[in-house]
Design a protein around this nucleic acid. Structure first.
Lengths: 221, 221
DNA sequence: CCCTCTTGGTACTACCCCGTACCAGTGTGC
DNA sequence: GCACACTGGTACGGGGTAGTACCAAGAGGG
């Protein structure tokens, strides 16, 4: 792509915006609409209220996103990308398994504690049934992908005889489940505030210890 | 108050129902309303639609439950009680720790896989922010209580030197998290069907193994 | 200077919903 | 046979929403 512009014919269809002002407007709509959808839910959010706060006209929404459903889908995809972006840091082969798990768990727990992560989880659980494609996208590129990546790491360590477990994928799911446990649920339900960094580190550290050694044997190293 | 009856003047206020037909009507309203709320969400469920299917008049709802919010609260409490009822089976002291954990995990996983459990979880995550009292009730008598009971069991076993872990409550949360992990999320999102009994048993069995011995050491017993 | 295209803003249509009020039919105690 | 409370059903008022249509103002090229 020499230029960032799309085909000019696309404008005739009214699907995309070309002008800089149009792109800025779209971004503002996405920002305000996300706030509304996350705060009031899909049914409770109102197109009129979104436009009243974001400025512009309803045509900006219906031309760019096709309607309320399209706007909702765009918001889910957008926030999913921002959440996954902060999680993208790769695996370091040189680190010990304990360190690797700790870093992995911290990254996951941080994303889950983010306002974006919390809101996304809430809205997907709420509306996933009515938007199966979005639910699958969320799962496959979120919790499912994370577990798959962790399972690969565990497989490597298993081949290196560092660990001895039959089902690495189950173990990965177990670790993800420990991180997204009652603490996460309590934060989701606003029963307690999001954990401080030191709380998070202690929490993840305990999860790593249990995953590695369990609660029966005395810690070895 | 010598008898268990409430003041007869209560009927004048229109708060309670006395007749058998009234109680049957209330039960039917609860049943249909639960279906509607679970299917369409709080905002999407309509009082008119509920009455159209349950029969009777809107006055039956406004007299008995006070309004839409009261009806919703009644439904959450009702379904929470049914879900907890199936979970109430007590701890058996004579069983081994492994057996105890397995039974515990199976009970929890079964409740979570129930339509009632799935719907309740979904609706509480959706609407918990708007109904803080219900969210707290759900957490305290559901996931929170379960974790507390399990933590007590672990404390006993710790005093008996069966296990060696610093934070029993964290370990209980970890186990609950493993049970309510990606599998549960996938079922919630309708990405996969509820697990069959044999799948559930294998799943819980692996979680018990990891909790007890971790993935590093070779299984000992 | 004029014309056209874009865009912000508003009006409108056709619904839907909560909560209350009213009306007609029914069964029961007397 | 009768008065009465109860109940099912319907109508209404006030408000709100999604989506479409329309209008007026401004920008920019010729």
């Amino acid at each position: 792509m020499s230029t960032t512009k799309m085909k000019t014919s696309a404008r005739a269809v009214g699907k995309t915006r070309a002008s800089a002002a149009g792109r800025a407007r779209s971004a503002e709509i996405l920002r305000v609409a996300a706030k509304m959808f996350f705060k009031h839910g899909y049914a409770g959010a109102s197109i009129d209220a979104i436009i009243a706060e974001a400025g512009g006209s309803k045509r900006d929404i219906y031309g760019e996103f096709g309607g309320k459903e399209g706007l909702f889908a765009a918001i889910v995809r957008d926030n999913l990308n921002t959440a996954l972006g902060t999680l993208a840091s790769g695996m370091d082969e040189s680190k010990s398994l304990q360190e690797t798990l700790f870093d992995f768990g911290i990254g996951l727990a941080e994303v889950l504690s983010t306002p974006t992560g919390l809101n996304l989880y809430r809205i997907i659980v709420s509306e996933g049934v009515r938007f199966p494609a979005l639910a699958k996208l969320f799962y496959d590129s979120g919790p499912g992908l994370v577990a798959n990546k962790l399972a690969e790491v565990l497989e490597q360590r298993k081949r290196a005889k560092e660990i001895d477990v039959a089902d690495c994928h189950a173990a990965a799911d177990q670790f993800v489940g420990m991180i997204r446990g009652n603490l996460h649920l309590a934060v989701i339900l606003r029963i307690r505030p999001a954990p401080r960094p030191d709380e998070l580190q202690a929490f993840v550290s305990k999860a790593v210890a249990t995953l590695l050694h369990g609660i029966v044997s005395t810690r070895k190293a």
